[in-house]
Design a protein around this nucleic acid. Structure first.
Length: 159
DNA sequence: GCCAACGTTGGC
DNA sequence: GCCAACGTTGGC
């Protein structure tokens, strides 16, 4: 969904450990699309379930790796629905407290817009204009964070 | 591997 | 409802 001026309703940043799932895995994925399963944090879940809309854009961020940073741009391709892995006893994401009638975890699906040059976290920190980014705040661990439209635009300008 | 920051759990 | 203990995240 786009606003009256044709812009996405929201911008986001979504973290993934490339050893688990990288931007290249998304390039190789069928239809360049994947469910964003495995989120087990309520705040991040609520963003997906309550706020993400079709057409929202997000930075695909590589975390816990040699050079953490933004690795690509993705769009929300499917609205949130119950995360299947919560019901799967063999999955490391299994949640014994979740039931089909009362699922606890949700995931959207994302589609690759484009792989970008890697913008390292250290470079993002160099720009005073980005100092307010949630990603850059101390102690930030949230795997999904909203990105301010002005911050989005600025980063697009340095890609 | 270290450790700061933060979220969750569970006893009381 | 408090809060100590524990587990996880993620940069360095």
């Amino acid at each position: 969904m786009l606003d009256d001026n044709g812009y996405p309703m929201h911008y986001w940043l979504m973290k993934s450990e490339p050893a688990e799932f990288s931007i290249d895995d998304l390039v190789r994925a069928a239809k360049n699309t994947t469910p964003w399963f495995g989120v087990r944090n309520y705040q991040a879940r609520n963003f997906m379930r309550d706020q993400m809309q079709l057409g929202d854009l997000a930075f695909f961020y590589h975390s816990s790796c040699e050079v953490p940073g933004i690795a690509g741009i993705v769009e929300i391709a499917k609205l949130a629905y119950p995360d299947a892995t919560q019901f799967d006893r063999k999955s490391s994401y299994f949640d014994p407290k979740a039931t089909r009638d009362n699922p606890r975890w949700f995931n959207v699906e994302i589609r690759l817009v484009k792989k970008t040059q890697l913008v390292p976290l250290s470079k993002l920190r160099d720009y005073p204009r980005l100092a307010g980014m949630q990603l850059l705040q101390r102690g930030n661990r949230l795997s999904i964070t909203p990105v301010d439209p002005a911050e989005w635009k600025f980063i697009m300008g340095i890609l």
